[in-house]
Design a protein around this nucleic acid. Structure first.
Length: 431
RNA sequence: GCGGAUGUAGCUCAGUUGGUUAGAGCGCCGGGUUGUGGUUCCGGAGGCCGUGGGUUCAAUUCCCAUCAUUCGCCCCA
């Protein structure tokens, strides 16, 4: 029995083709977030289990994390997400960091789950967080960045929709209007999160189930209808429209509208899965391709996390964008072009001139051009095929004639245009 | 953790109502062509038909198990 060449379940090998795509995607991510003044950080892949127990969703920590006990009997987890890590880092230097603090990272994260479309065991995730801003300016900036990211890749408004919701608004409603306790609230939120996946009837049933049976069911039916299924908030026996949390939501939507982001809707069912979110949350959906039926990415405000480390709390808004779902989105919308090689020129050596060809290549490298020289000694046809397979944009033919005249034949593979050029002209053309 | 689908050449897939040497396209290697590919022609290599067991004179084909891949549920990027 020989060894398997397959990567471990749910992980990926990145051959040069795949790696080019990944580098291209990450470069755009970095470009956009850095244009908003965000600075890159990184943290360890391994974290103590306690970091996640109180704050991430319970299921992710208990059932969906890679974890082990180290030689000092410490419970260790391979990070399933980055938010607790960055919160820990900010708390650790709470006093000396300047606010607003804008941070981003592209960590690989690990979740032990059965893979399916858009869900692997190892994935990369762009994390963008702004610390120290209490007001909705931070929420707006966060969503604006999300929108800019999509546009940077050529996505148009008709391809995606941004849905915003408010945990705080839901809490006020559930607590004050419905009279729910903490535990019930959590259960209700989980059902709310699934709203679009189940029928209105099932939704109502499951909400009631989450609340428990002791309550007056007819009363809740009406509330569920008016809040979730067909919002008519003016009719509610409670002044939702004047709640600060509701006003925030409206202001965010209006401000985004003003700056040209008008594909934002208020969706009461947008709550997100993590427990640490405290206020406004958002999710982005692919609205053109039904196969991408989950949220592409999302985030929101989590004001309580930094304070968990025993320092003054720091209000925070952030979002995470997974590489797998995002790449699915790009593929479905034909926004994923094939990337050229990092190698600019492939030297096709004709005849017995390898040493001279090497010299030419070295001269070009010194001008900042990436040059690979064919070493196979095969006939030119084979050398060309090899270069094309690697997606190298230029071929440089070097034979005796070229060496003697110091003029080389440069061919652009995409167009088949061929020119006889000096070294100087080659570097200008390729650059 | 639960349910479905699929495992035949490097890739995408045919096929065998159970019967000698297992098929295609693409790709790969070599040649026609000792200086030009993506669009020519000729030739070639490459398969324990996922793995283990059962039924049978005979299994790649039928049955069971198992592993892998994949889709959905749960949860989430």
């Amino acid at each position: 029995m020989s060894l398997s060449t397959q990567p471990y379940k749910g992980t990926r090998d990145f051959y040069p083709d795949d790696m080019r795509t990944r580098k291209w995607m990450f470069a755009k991510w970095r470009k956009v977030v850095e244009s908003f003044g965000y600075e890159e950080y990184d943290g360890p892949i391994l974290e103590p289990l306690e970091l996640y127990t109180a704050k991430t969703s319970e299921e992710i920590v208990n059932d969906q994390s890679f974890n082990f006990t180290d030689r000092g009997d410490r419970r260790v987890v391979m990070r399933p997400e980055m938010t607790p890590t960055v919160s820990r880092m900010v708390a650790g230097k709470r006093q000396e960091l300047g606010y607003p603090l804008r941070l981003y990272s592209i960590p690989n994260c690990f979740r032990y789950e059965r893979q399916q479309r858009g869900r692997l065991r190892e994935f990369w995730q762009l994390n963008v967080d702004i610390f120290g801003v209490e007001g909705i300016e931070a929420d707006i900036e966060s969503i604006q960045i999300a929108d800019s990211l999509l546009k940077e890749f050529g996505a148009s408004k008709d391809m995606y929709q941004i849905r915003i919701g408010s945990r705080k608004l839901l809490h006020e409603l559930l607590h004050q209007l419905w009279g729910l306790e903490k535990g019930q609230e959590k259960a209700v939120l989980q059902v709310v999160d699934r709203m679009h996946k189940i029928s209105p009837e099932d939704f109502k049933e499951q909400i009631k189930l989450a609340i428990g049976t002791s309550n007056d069911q007819d009363n809740y039916s009406e509330l569920i209808d008016s809040f979730f299924n067909n919002p008519r908030w003016d009719d509610l026996p409670y002044d939702i429209l004047n709640l600060p949390s509701y006003k925030d939501l409206q202001s965010i939507k209006n401000k985004l509208d003003e700056i040209g982001i008008d594909n934002v809707i208020h969706d009461p069912s947008t709550v997100r899965g993590f427990e640490y979110y405290t206020d406004v949350v958002f999710e982005v959906f692919d609205i053109k391709n039904p196969e991408n039926n989950r949220s592409l990415f999302g985030g929101g405000r989590y004001d309580g996390l930094v304070g968990e480390f025993g320092v003054e709390p720091v209000p925070t808004v952030g979002f995470g964008m997974g590489d797998v779902t995002f790449q699915n989105f790009l593929e479905s919308n034909k926004l994923l072009p094939e990337q050229p090689s990092e190698t600019d020129i492939y030297v096709v050596v004709i005849g017995d001139v390898l040493t001279d060809a090497q010299k030419v290549a070295q001269d070009l490298r010194e001008k900042g051009i990436n040059v690979a020289v064919d070493l196979s000694g095969k006939k030119s046809e084979k050398q060309i095929k090899n270069a094309l397979k690697k997606n190298i944009p230029y071929l440089l033919f070097i034979g005796e004639e070229e060496i003697n005249n110091q003029v080389y034949t440069l061919k652009e593979t995409a167009t088949s245009n061929e020119q006889k050029l000096s070294l100087e002209d080659i570097s200008k053309t390729v650059a």
